[in-house]
Design a binder for these strands. Structure first.
Length: 555
RNA sequence: GUCCCAGUAGCUCAGCAGGAUAGAGCAACAGCCUUCUAAGCUGUGGGUCGCAGGUUCGAAUCCUGCCUGGGACGCCA
């Protein structure tokens, strides 16, 4: 538990004691004490609404209750210097802020670990994200999913969850047959022979390049093989090529996975039948119109779903159920899937399957990532999957840079559609939030370097010298970091990290402009400020690390 | 028709378990570089929180209905 949490817990327990002592409520009746940090400084460091909450239980006016609480409140035990009743019945607490001076040594000592907590209680949680079909390049939607997924995993880990990152490879089924046919057509075309693309073929430039590559390497030799052998070759070759490309691009994008799970392996390891058997035993399976169905409506889905088509092949859902069963068999007690908005309709049936397998519905959480619109020069860039004319992640990385993409994609709540402004992301100006934050970090590094060059050692700093309002605001913000990470983890909202780090950078810039850090006239003050700067540097770097953005030492 | 997401300042969006006068960036306007990076700072103006009800001490936040925009509703994946 960090200093801020200790402070809050101490305060809460004093409030609880006071309520019980004042005979307003018993310990059992008492609701959880809520402490909030008022926006207005005149309202103190913390405020509680407990008096209003107790109005019904104690049958008294909130302000009267607040008075009774304060009459029985021992402020000294919680570092409270002043407590006031305000508004409809808030109690505002003003704290002795010396506790803040303990914060800097903690941050400096913890370094990269500052912000870590144990609220995840080591819970085994699996996050499946991206899982783009190996049939083309990653586009913007995947990139957002990758950014959010990776950042969420980082946040969860920092908050003490035991996280496994997984990519589900859809390397079985129709789309792979299509891939093989598409590669074949592109290969033929590269040889100068007439061949139409299959109807649902993959039109991407990557497949054209692949066809040319094959033509170059093999000439027309591949045509000597049987059609079946050719397609099998194109399938394997295309799959490997696409998967390598996905892995390379994602790695470049600073996203890695603990496990790449192959759909085909479900067939090879005979995992699909046993999963179906479980549903069958429990009576959720029935036959109709020559097909095998899952009665997902038993669990709130709006219609039942086919598992085995009347041509005796599986639907997409069937191996996916086996896959999720496998995840659960591996001992994860929480599964998070990150899907694009176009898959949201798939949630009820998957959740039904989880329940049919004997688990709670909320074992599976699905985070839906809304769509991305790309804007350049104020105009929306149209994307078309059919013609393959979508902007790829690779192109975007080359044009915009990884830091800006990662930051922009995680900056907004997943629920919101995201307008990605190319001009803004590319601009090296203060309009660009990424540069704004990185600049704050670089500024600090410059000061620390200059101090080091001058031989200033601030190890023996005295934090009590940091009395200015701007320094104090900065300190309080630093103290919030652990809580912010914990909230982002529990609510699955990595965008809070960008909000936080932006605010922190803003406070740093403000402080920087108001106070001279390196002051030859005041050695002790300089040391204290340098220590504060180092703590800010560490916190910014840790926050940026969570969202996969670099923290440069100079710009 | 059913379901999901969104609707907050001119624009893009925050707003944490309901809390005090609704915030930030951009844009507009006015200032700050003989001083640690002006990729920065300071200040001003700008809002019926889509609409209508309800829940309560209190609603941008929760519930219901409606309106608008986007998406999903396959024996596709």
């Amino acid at each position: 538990m960090n200093i801020m949490q200790q402070m809050q817990e101490a305060l809460k327990s004093q409030i609880e004691d006071a309520v019980v002592k004042a005979d307003l409520a018993t310990k059992e009746e008492l609701p959880a004490i809520i402490l909030e940090q008022p926006k207005d400084k005149a309202h103190g460091d913390y405020a509680t609404n407990i008096a209003m909450q107790l109005a019904r239980i104690a049958k008294k006016a909130p302000r009267k209750i607040a008075e009774d609480i304060l009459a029985n409140f021992d402020g000294e035990k919680a570092s409270v210097t002043k407590a006031e009743i305000a508004g409809p019945g808030f109690i505002n607490f003003f704290l002795n802020n010396t506790y803040l001076s303990d914060l800097i040594p903690t941050i400096l000592e913890q370094g990269k670990d500052y912000g870590n907590s144990t609220i995840g209680k080591n819970e085994k949680i699996q996050v499946e994200f991206v899982s783009a079909n190996p049939t083309g390049d990653l586009h913007l939607g995947h990139a957002r999913g990758a950014s959010v997924g990776d950042s969420l995993c980082n946040v969860l880990q920092k908050a003490g969850y035991d996280v496994a990152r997984e990519y589900y490879i859809n390397d079985a089924g129709n789309q792979i047959v299509n891939l093989a046919k598409s590669v074949q057509a592109r290969y033929m075309q590269a040889l100068g022979k007439e061949m139409d693309m299959p109807e649902d073929g993959y039109q991407g430039a990557d497949i054209i390049a692949l066809g040319e590559k094959l033509a170059k390497e093999h000439g027309d030799k591949l045509l000597e093989e049987s059609e079946e052998k050719q397609l099998s070759y194109f399938r394997d070759y295309g799959l490997k090529y696409e998967l390598d490309k996905l892995a390379t691009d994602l790695k470049a994008f600073r996203v890695s996975f603990d496990h790449w799970f192959s759909e085909t392996s479900l067939y090879e390891d005979k995992r699909i039948e046993p999963a179906l058997d479980v549903l069958k035993e429990k009576g959720y399976i029935f036959e109709e119109d020559g097909a095998t169905w899952f009665r997902s409506t038993d669990f709130g889905d709006d219609k039942n779903r086919v598992l085995i088509k009347n041509d005796s092949t599986y639907t997409y859902l069937t191996p996916d159920i086996a896959y999720h069963k496998n995840k659960l068999d591996r001992g994860f007690n929480k599964l998070i899937n990150i899907w694009g908005a176009d898959h949201h309709g798939y949630i009820p049936r998957m959740r039904a399957a989880i329940q049919a397998l004997g688990y709670d519905a909320d074992t599976l959480e699905v985070e839906i990532i809304q769509m991305v619109n790309l804007f350049e020069n104020g105009e929306k860039i149209k994307m078309s999957k059919r013609t393959g004319k979508a902007v790829t992640l690779r192109e975007l990385m080359e044009e915009v840079g990884i830091d800006a993409i990662r930051y922009f994609f995680v900056m907004r709540s997943c629920d919101s559609h995201l307008d990605f402004d190319m001009n803004l992301a590319k601009s090296e100006s203060n309009d660009n939030p990424v540069y704004y934050v990185q600049y704050a970090h670089a500024r600090i590094c410059t000061m620390l370097k200059q101090a080091a060059d001058k031989g200033i050692d601030f190890k023996d700093f005295d934090a009590s010298l940091l009395t200015s309002e701007k320094a104090e605001t900065l300190l309080k913000k630093l103290g919030e970091f652990t809580q912010v990470v914990g909230d982002a983890a529990m609510n699955r909202t990595p965008h809070r990290i960008t909000n936080y780090v932006f605010d922190l950078a803003s406070l740093l810039h403000s402080f920087y402009n108001a106070e001279k850090v390196l002051d030859p006239e005041n050695v002790e003050g300089t040391k204290a400020r340098l220590a504060l700067m180092d703590a800010v540097r560490i916190t910014i770097a840790n926050a940026l690390d969570l969202i996969g953005v670099e923290a440069p030492e100079s710009m």
